[in-house]
C-alpha cells in the first residue's frame, strides 16, 4: 500500500482533506480492498478508543482533594493575616517615629536646653523636691 495514500487515510479522520486529496483517496479506496479493510479497522479501533473514557478515580477522590484544598485555604488565611500585620507595620512605625521626633523637637524648643529630661518633658526635680518628709508629716 502506498505510504502517502495510507497517511492520507489516517489524516482524513483528523483534518479536512482538500479536493485533490479527497479524489486521490476515494480512487485508492475503490481500487484497493486492502485499503478498505485498513479503513474499517481504523474506524473500529477509534470507536474502541472512545470507550476508554474513565468514569472517575476512587469514590473518595473528591473528598481527598477537598480536604487538601481546605488545608491550603487555612494556610492562606494565616498567611494573609501575617501579611497584613507586616504591611501595617511599616506605616505605623513611620508615623510613630515622626510623632516622637516632633514631640522631642517641641520639647527642646520649649526648654531651650538639650537634655534627656527636656527631651521627654520630665520636670528637672530631685527626690527631696518631690518628697519632703517634713512637709508631708506636718500636713498629716
Amino acid at each position: 500500500m502506498d505510504k502517502m495514500i495510507k497517511q492520507l487515510l489516517y489524516e482524513s479522520f483528523d483534518r479536512e482533506l482538500n479536493e485533490r486529496e479527497k479524489i486521490i483517496l476515494d480512487f485508492a479506496l475503490i481500487d484497493s480492498e486492502k485499503l478498505q479493510r485498513e479503513k474499517e479497522n481504523l474506524m473500529l479501533m477509534r470507536n474502541k478508543l472512545n470507550d476508554q473514557v474513565e468514569p472517575g478515580f476512587s469514590g473518595s477522590f473528591v473528598n481527598k482533594v477537598m480536604s487538601q484544598v481546605q488545608k491550603l485555604a487555612k494556610q492562606e488565611e494565616n498567611y494573609e493575616f501575617f501579611e497584613n500585620v507586616y504591611l501595617l507595620f511599616r506605616p505605623v512605625a513611620i508615623a510613630a517615629t515622626v510623632l516622637i521626633i516632633a514631640f522631642v523637637s517641641l520639647n527642646f524648643l520649649k526648654s531651650e536646653k538639650i537634655s534627656l529630661e527636656d527631651a521627654i518633658a520630665v520636670p528637672d526635680v530631685t527626690i527631696s523636691d518631690a518628697y519632703d518628709p517634713i512637709t508631708d508629716f506636718s500636713l498629716e
Partner: peptide, 24 residues
C-alpha cells in the same frame, strides 16, 4: 471571594475528564 467549598463542584465536574487523561 474565599469560598473554597465551591471548588467541590468543579472537582466533581472535571474528575472523569482528568481520570481519563491520567489513567490512559
Amino acid at each position: 471571594k474565599g469560598n473554597s467549598l465551591a471548588y467541590r463542584e468543579l472537582v466533581m465536574r472535571y474528575e472523569s475528564q482528568i481520570a481519563s487523561t491520567v489513567i490512559n
